[in-house]
Design a protein around this nucleic acid. Sequence first.
DNA 1: CGTCAAACGATTTTCGAAAATGACGGAAGG
DNA 2: CCTTCCGTCATTTTCGAAAATCGTTTGACG
Lengths: 234, 234
Amino acid sequence: MTASGERSGTLADVAYGRISQAITVGSLKPGQRLRFEDLRELCETSISPVREALTRLTAEGLTTLEGHRGYRVSPLSLTDLWDTVRTRQLIEGRAIRLSVELGDEAWEADLVSAFHLMSRWQRIHPQQPSAENHDWHRHHVRFHQVLIAACGSPLLLGFCETLAQRAERYRRLSLGAPYERDIGQEHAAIYEAAIERDAPAAERLLCFHYEQTARALETLVVAAEAGSSGEWSL
Amino acid sequence: MTASGERSGTLADVAYGRISQAITVGSLKPGQRLRFEDLRELCETSISPVREALTRLTAEGLTTLEGHRGYRVSPLSLTDLWDTVRTRQLIEGRAIRLSVELGDEAWEADLVSAFHLMSRWQRIHPQQPSAENHDWHRHHVRFHQVLIAACGSPLLLGFCETLAQRAERYRRLSLGAPYERDIGQEHAAIYEAAIERDAPAAERLLCFHYEQTARALETLVVAAEAGSSGEWSL
DNA sequence: CGTCAAACGATTTTCGAAAATGACGGAAGG
DNA sequence: CCTTCCGTCATTTTCGAAAATCGTTTGACG
């Protein structure tokens, strides 16, 4: 056990967590070069754990590696956004269908619980969930995880996790943007379809959910691009 | 350039290649514990490159990591085989459909070329392709790669690669087993559907192709299990 | 005799420094 | 003036040893 609270597994795990988070929240910017010296400082270790973390992150697509020329944060783009969303619809669509078909009593209970926590949060806090509240984010992630948890395919679940992590980077970009959608309603629809064991409907609604998110983000980005800077590489 | 022929990128790449190959061909057995000392010897490096290789392999599912307790070769099982195949059918099915729909002239040319090389090999060498001939394997892999190459989704292609690597371990197990199937015919059918731009047919035939492979392997394994040893963890 | 705790051994994990590599810039030659 | 070649420099990559960790055994105590 270490004095400074955060320490679950190896130092490499810590490094992975920190760098991963820094990328998703954007303190490490898309396309930015990653020097070991800087990351070593961020992670408070030597470079060995940092290197291991970067290797993992690269395997998941959050960073890229070019031969002997170092690592970079993977750039974001509209093309990549749509690739991520389309692939996610395919894979998570299959996962939720299987999950709704196969899920047992215990799974149903988990789902009720997860949905309750998420929607209760929204009832209590009238603020838009888009305000990056850490609690809501936790409930939201959990809800989506439980939806597919009973699919029975470790492979599918692994891919879903990778894709969710990818998508999360884009979702963060849209924080503070005005919402035309009723996200709570979309979630409720998926939830009800799942509870009533209507697998095709659950799949359809989940895909729609992601489609909407992507569309909103696309609009936002196109507007921002016409406006000012070019933080984006089309 | 190094004296001993094999050296493309970093030593970590070499280590990755050697360990990866050792796992797929089975000289490192499923479930076997991987000690750094042994691998260091196999790769002719120190442990740093070995560690990086293992990190990558674990991300792809060829090895597993348990806390501070070291790495193991991922075990094989019928459940995992079917998970791999079902997932592959889903993802590679989508990929080939997109590829057939979107592929341009140049892709068509690549496909003709790849198919020709593969089928010519089979014509010239009357032996069953199952005899692990390295050339046929190369052509076979290439054919399957080109089939999906034009799908336009880097993500999909990445997943396909992971899945193919996973599946390859199982395919190797069936070497030397009697073939009831006409693999050449199955390939030809997929090829023709692709050339004639019949995307749904191409998808259907590719899925069938994988289904057959899995079934054959399943039969083989069940028989072997009833017979003698228990190299398998159901 | 059984249980628990401390210590050992084997192995992984981490470190800091050395070696290797690619990028950059300046000087020589055309 | 442009091109090419060769040092120099910043970084990555690799190494071998030190530190940490886990599983097991040993020994004491109830």
